[in-house]
Structure formats: structure tokens, C-alpha cells
């Protein structure tokens, strides 16, 4: 738990002052969006909230709905 906080704080410290100083608003926006996503995922991981796996969704989509599959065995 504490690792997450440290690491995420570290990320902000490294990136944000430089971006603010150089007034790179676009970069700051992109950074913030990704940062929030990372933060949410990180917290979900630490708090043991199950994170939906994109590959399972893809597997479901391709195999069950489209029916394309290699025969097993």
C-alpha cells in the first residue's frame, strides 16, 4: 500500500513541475488522463478489487460470439 503512494507521488514529482514550467498544456492533459487511469488501476490492485481483463473479454468475443476457434488438443 505504501509503495503505491510513494511510487505515484514520485511519478508526479518527476513529471509535473517540468510540464508546468514549460507550459506544455497538451502534454499535461495527456499525462493527467493516463495518470488517473494508472492511479485507479493501482488502487484497485492494492485493494484487491478484481480488475477486468481485456483479453478475457476478447477471448469471449472471438470464441463465443464469432465462433472462430482452433480445435483443442
Amino acid at each position: 500500500m505504501i509503495f503505491i503512494i510513494l511510487i505515484y507521488a514520485f511519478i508526479i514529482i518527476i513529471n509535473v513541475p517540468g510540464l508546468l514550467k514549460r507550459k506544455e498544456w497538451r502534454e499535461l492533459t495527456a499525462f493527467s488522463i493516463l495518470y488517473v487511469i494508472a492511479l485507479v488501476l493501482g488502487l484497485m490492485y492494492v485493494l484487491d478489487i478484481p480488475i477486468p481483463s481485456p483479453m478475457k473479454g476478447l477471448q469471449h468475443l472471438i470464441v463465443d460470439i464469432l465462433g472462430i476457434e482452433y480445435p483443442q488438443g
Binding site: 511510487i7 510540464l19 493516463l34 495518470y35 487511469i37 488501476l41 493501482g42 490492485y45 480488475i51
Partner: peptide, 12 residues
């Protein structure tokens, strides 16, 4: 600036 957040996302 995108490198570190993406790294965190990738790890998770």
C-alpha cells in the same frame, strides 16, 4: 511525460 504513467498501467 507519458512514459511513467504508461509504465504503471502496463505493470498492473
Amino acid at each position: 511525460p507519458l512514459v511513467l504513467p504508461l509504465a504503471a498501467i502496463e505493470v498492473i
